[in-house]
Design a binder for these strands. Structure first.
Length: 832
RNA sequence: GGGCGAGUGGUGGAAUGGCAGACACGUGGGACUUAAAAUCCCAUGGCUGAAUAAGCCGUGUGGGUUCGACUCCCACCUCGCCCACCA
């Protein structure tokens, strides 16, 4: 019992020390190279579980490691403090979001403190603080004046039960997450950021992000969704009107046998006017409106449509084709109108089949003869064009280009590029967010608030009961204001900004968190950014990272920052799973760190969390396995303790000295490479475990030798060999288990913090010393092993292998075909 | 439907063309103890075998490349994640 390490005392002692000495404080005037290590700032929810901990522990280990590698490290932390949960809690528990947020921040900070996770707390920011959101509003105005902000009518998720607007994440399988009512679409006038202007650059510059995980880049690429194609114009018969559609398959234009409009298409209104089909069409439109956007989007709804009563003219052959309206066409993508080619598009095929629309084969399937009457599905592959006038016989691949150019020349259409990326809807009909700094004046219209009048402060006193409009609407003191242009009476915008706006620029604010004059200090930002290492969950792979990249590019264009991309290197850690599901409060499978830290200490929790598996992958939490980390730390404690108490043997045996030196060097190399590469904490820790096992084994062997030889040297022991190995262990372990290693480091006679110590170098010469094992295979199967000096030549390897007793017995009476020799590694004897 | 990732002992995982199962967890046995816990030591992929002799099998399935494949290529199966009627 006496030997078990007193984690409570030690951890308290060093946490206080680090806080007092401000260990992780960035030194602005340091000559060391900079390293900006950033963890995605969290939303302050009630309390952290061990799953959250993974993110902070990884970041802390990296920050401490880089500090020891000689970098001037910047590791700031802040709070993404606006958002829905606080507002929902306000509705439910009648606590003001400001108070609940403050309480949560307090609790989380104390948890981070107890984990031994260090930040430069002097740079703490909170996005719900007026000092911060003033600049979020400033960002809005900058985009507004640059023409990157506009207002238009758009659909929002509307819960009829709660009478409120929902964020996409709150819509679960088409229903409200709180009351389970079917979510409807409702039209509201909303503010947008024109991120689509940057679509191509956001796509192209992914190439610059060499140190981002490939999968994140692929997700962004898919999200931006660039596709090349053409706009093709169809004249409406009997009307002075042209409908344009977008297609990526101009090669199939001769097979277009009908055209389809999205129900939301503005032309639908014109058709209805004066149409004999008016009632039927209206009924249909009503029905489609009743279908939730979720179902429509996710293809849960059968394709359904109605003939408009109108015809359009296919420009390439002047054929008259019917114009339909159908639920399977998306209004938001392309032009909201598509040319239907049932022979070569599965969706059009299904729809055409249902409504008996005609079908024309225009691409020949090289595999079989396509017969319009007998096709059971569309042929979407490549082949030669048929029934396509002058383009017959052309390959479909070439025809795509040729027909597109030919139509462009003849004013039938235009080559174009389309993106799936939509503009960023930033309006939220919510209270707990940054107010949009816009004023509506009867005389002047939409007027932006003047920069010098920022921030537009959120009023504190508010009625939270959801009523379907922003809660700010009811606050007369807030909405009534003077027009910034004419000074007359005007009303404020009552919507607040999406919290993704807050988090799209926070990494800039950390460089000058208290600056009252500017959003950020340009000189500091240009010195410290891009962020060297960004760490966070893969769930932010698309939105947050895309928005941050967008805002950085906008600021770059305005000359506010001198870089195109905000995050140089990105690491996305996996989730912690418990009982088969992501650890979360709602699933009831959270493991609280508080009790684990009380029982085993923060170092144990940290080591286990990092040891659990590759950090980029999901991992199953196992409470019992935590004990393994605890046992390991105790083993380190005891091993170092026996040295400190002069109870360990003096390592004198030459062979044992060599073994210790070699293993220490191997492990220094392994841990260093694991940390420098892609954060293989699990194998780094396992190799430190091996080093500790080796030290113990060497100690046991030496003790045995001492007993056998009757050696005794009480009192005056020379521990330089053992001490070197123990010191290596302690240093290598320190980024992962900082408290116990600080304690041991001090006990070993060092004055300064272990984190002021330089990370050890390894000696390649020692690694290359001595004999190495060489494998001998016969026909690729391991048959024997020999030890040879490193660098032995091929001939001696061959001879040694052939003279091996075991191998000899295998070779008796067999004929050797050839021998493969890989120096320092293996000999493979291939038999006939 | 598309994209990405994964599949290795009882479990988490290691090995990225060259000794499969490092390091741990668990389990079994032993030591210590009046006893238990803790700790320490030994064993631990499967099969044949008295064996700590020897051998065979073995990284989701089937094929291929190679002197040699968990690793590379092709096809398939299963699971997970992201996107999804994007014309």
């Amino acid at each position: 019992m006496e030997d078990r390490y007193p984690h409570r005392e030690i951890e308290k002692k060093w946490q206080e020390f680090w806080q007092k000495s401000k260990l992780m404080k960035m030194a602005p005037s340091s000559a060391k190279p900079k390293f900006y290590c950033l963890m995605m700032f969290p939303y302050p929810s009630a309390s952290l579980h061990v799953g959250h901990g993974r993110n902070y522990i990884i970041g802390d280990a990296v920050a401490r490691f880089m500090k020891m590698r000689g970098y001037n490290v910047l590791a700031p932390m802040g709070w993404d403090a606006f958002g829905l949960p606080a507002e929902n809690a306000a509705i439910k528990n009648n606590v003001h979001p400001k108070d609940s947020t403050a309480n949560n921040i307090k609790k989380m900070k104390s948890q981070l403190y107890e984990w031994g996770v260090l930040y430069d707390w002097g740079r703490e920011i909170s996005s719900s603080n007026p000092d911060y959101y003033k600049w979020t509003q400033w960002l809005f105005l900058k985009l507004y004046h640059k023409g990157l902000t506009y207002k238009k009518e758009a659909s929002v998720n509307w819960c009829p039960g709660c009478r409120t607007v929902l964020a996409n994440e709150q819509v679960i399988n088409g229903a409200c997450e709180r009351c389970a009512s079917q979510v409807k679409q409702k039209k509201l006038k909303q503010w947008f950021f024109k991120i689509t202007d940057y679509a191509q650059r956001l796509l192209d510059d992914l190439e610059l992000l060499k140190e981002w995980p490939e999968r994140v880049k692929i997700m962004q690429r898919n999200w931006i969704g660039r596709s090349e194609g053409s706009f093709i114009d169809f004249k409406v018969e009997g009307m002075n009107k042209t409908l344009s559609c977008f297609t990526t398959r101009p090669d199939t234009i001769f097979g277009a046998t009908y055209m389809v409009l999205a129900p939301e298409h503005p032309f639908v209104g014109e058709i209805i006017k004066g149409s004999p089909e008016k009632v039927r069409i209206n009924d249909f439109l009503e029905k489609i409106k009743g279908q939730s956007s979720f179902d429509r989007q996710f293809g849960q709804v059968e394709k359904e449509g109605i003939f408009s009563g109108r015809y359009v003219i296919n420009p390439v052959n002047n054929e008259k084709i019917p114009l339909w309206i159908a639920n399977y066409v998306l209004f938001e993508y392309g032009t909201g109108a598509v040319m239907a080619v049932p022979a070569h598009d599965q969706r059009d095929f299904e729809f055409g089949n249902k409504y008996n629309l005609s079908l024309q084969v225009v691409i020949d399937d090289p595999g079989c003869d396509l017969e319009a009457s007998s096709m059971s599905c569309a042929f979407e592959g490549e082949g030669e064009l048929v029934n396509s006038a002058r383009f017959n016989g052309t390959g479909s691949k070439e025809a795509k280009e040729e027909i597109a150019l030919w139509m462009q020349k003849n004013n039938m259409g235009k080559k174009t590029i389309n993106y799936k990326l939509r503009d960023w809807l930033i309006s939220r009909q919510r209270y707990w967010g940054a107010p949009i700094p816009i004023v509506y004046c009867d005389k002047c219209g939409i007027v932006p608030v003047k920069e010098e009048n920022l921030p537009v402060e959120l009023p504190h006193s508010i009625e939270f009961r959801p009523s379907g409009v922003s809660p700010l609407q009811d606050n007369k003191d807030f909405i009534n204001t003077a027009c910034p242009a004419c000074g007359g009476p005007a009303r404020r915008e009552v919507d607040t900004m999406d919290t993704f706006v807050d988090s799209s620029w926070y990494y800039l604010r950390f460089l000058s968190p208290d600056n009252a004059e500017k959003a950020f200090d340009v000189e500091m930002v240009n010195k410290w950014l891009p962020v060297d290492q960004y760490i966070g969950g893969v769930e932010h792979a698309i939105l947050h990272l895309l928005y941050s990249r967008f805002i950085t590019k906008v600021f770059c264009d305005m000359g506010f920052v001198g870089f195109k991309e905000p995050f140089e290197r990105l690491f996305t850690q996996g989730m912690i799973i418990k009982d088969g599901a992501k650890m979360s409060k709602s699933k009831g499978n959270v493991v609280s760190p508080d009790k684990l830290i009380a029982d085993y200490g923060a170092d144990t929790v940290r080591v286990y969390t990092l040891f659990i598996g590759p950090p980029e992958k999901d991992a199953e939490w196992n409470d019992r396995a935590v004990e393994g980390a605890w046992r390991f730390l105790n083993k380190v404690w005891k091993t170092a303790g026996s040295l400190l108490k002069s109870a360990a043997p003096e390592i004198r045996d030459e062979k044992l000295i060599k073994r210790l030196k070699k293993k220490s060097n191997e492990v220094i190399k392994k841990v260093t490479l694991d940390m420098e590469g892609s954060f293989h904490f699990n194998t780094a820790i396992s190799s430190i475990m091996e080093l500790v096992n080796e030290i113990k084994s060497v100690m046991d062997k030496q003790a045995k030798i001492d007993i056998e030889s009757g050696y005794s040297n009480e009192g005056k022991k020379d521990y330089k060999n053992l001490k070197a190995a123990v010191e290596s262990t302690v240093i290598l372990l320190s980024p992962f288990a900082p408290h116990i290693t600080e304690e041991l480091w001090q006990a070993l006679g060092n004055k300064a913090s272990i984190f002021e110590k330089k990370w050890p170098e390894y000696d390649e010469l020692i690694l290359k010393e001595g004999f190495i094992p060489v494998i001998i295979q016969i026909n690729g199967k391991l048959r024997s092993k020999i030890e040879l000096a490193r660098g032995s030549d091929e001939a001696s390897l061959k001879t040694a292998a052939l003279n091996d007793e075991k191998i000899k017995s295998y070779l008796k009476g067999k004929e050797i075909k050839k021998i493969i020799v890989i120096p320092d590694k293996l000999v493979n004897i291939v038999l006939v």
